[in-house]
């Protein structure tokens, strides 16, 4: 099934239907392509049976059976700025009018890394790493900084008092503080002055059965999936080719893994 919520909405929003069907077509199209690239193809088929979409539909709670994660293949020649643009567009970022550059929100950024000794350099996108033992969740005095049952770390802005302790605690600098009054937010990403925010793995898209914006924009260089499901392609790829976490020494077990770092 698709999302019946989507369908319902489409009664009032004509354009929704077109988008929905185009998305379906895209997935059909890419499944054929995926069959060629993802080995073994049969695995994909099995997992389709292993988890039905009802697990992820709008009217189900986030499940602790699932742990959403990402695998970023930094060896792919991708313009990571496309991911940044997609993220900014999805969440309506970059709409500050007063803030200095160092005060503006960034959910995802491109980090250039260079080895001083060897001269080897590379780029990779860094966003909230959705840690299993997230320091931001631990230090938050009000519980505004929280981890959903499915491993997504996000800020409950209804509770955030803007103390910024989570920003102090995050080893990835993944969080931003809103330094000014904002208007014209997107429907799915409420944001406002005085609260801390960060990548939420496009949680409304995930609940809606869609991929996070950066994953869609990554031309296949970012794989999204369930780390708890050994049959998922992210788990399979991790099992086969391995992956690294940034600052794995801190033992926070981030949900975002990288290849080629």
């Amino acid at each position: 099934m698709t999302n019946n919520f989507d369908e319902k909405l489409s009664e009032s929003q004509d354009s929704e239907q077109a988008v929905e069907s185009s998305r379906r077509n895209f997935i059909f199209g890419s499944v054929a392509a995926a069959g060629l690239t993802v080995a073994p193809g049969m695995m994909l088929y099995q997992t389709a049976n292993a988890r039905s979409l009802s697990d992820f539909s709008l009217n189900e709670k986030a499940s602790s059976q699932v742990r959403w994660g990402m695998l970023v293949d930094t060896t792919k020649q991708v313009d990571w700025n496309k991911c940044v643009d997609a993220c900014n567009k999805e969440h309506g970022l970059n709409n500050e009018t007063h803030s200095r550059d160092d005060q503006k929100t960034q959910y995802i950024r491109v980090v250039d890394v260079k080895n001083k000794t060897t001269g080897y350099s590379m780029s990779l996108p860094v966003m909230c790493q959705h840690c299993e033992s997230a320091p931001c969740v631990d230090v938050c005095p009000t519980g505004a900084s929280m981890k959903r049952a499915d491993g997504i770390v996000l800020v409950d802005r209804h509770r955030c008092i803007g103390c910024r302790y989570c920003m102090m605690a995050c080893p990835y600098k993944a969080r931003s503080f809103v330094h000014e009054v904002l208007t014209d937010q997107t429907e799915n990403t409420p944001r406002g002055k005085g609260c801390v925010e960060s990548c939420n793995m496009c949680v409304t898209r995930i609940d809606n059965g869609q991929l996070p914006a950066c994953v869609e924009a990554s031309e296949g260089a970012i794989i999204f999936g369930d780390l708890n499901d050994p049959q998922s392609d992210i788990s399979q790829l991790l099992a086969k080719h391995g992956g690294k976490q940034i600052r794995a020494d801190l033992k926070l077990n981030p949900g975002v893994h990288y290849q080629g770092i």
Partner: peptide
């Protein structure tokens, strides 16, 4: 946002495998 831009960053590059279980189920 969203409605207007979904297609904009739909990934339709052939050979991609940015595909999740959910999509397959979908």
């Amino acid at each position: 946002a969203l409605t207007g831009s979904k297609q904009h960053y739909s990934n339709q590059v052939p050979g991609t495998y940015s595909l999740t279980i959910k999509d397959v189920a979908n």
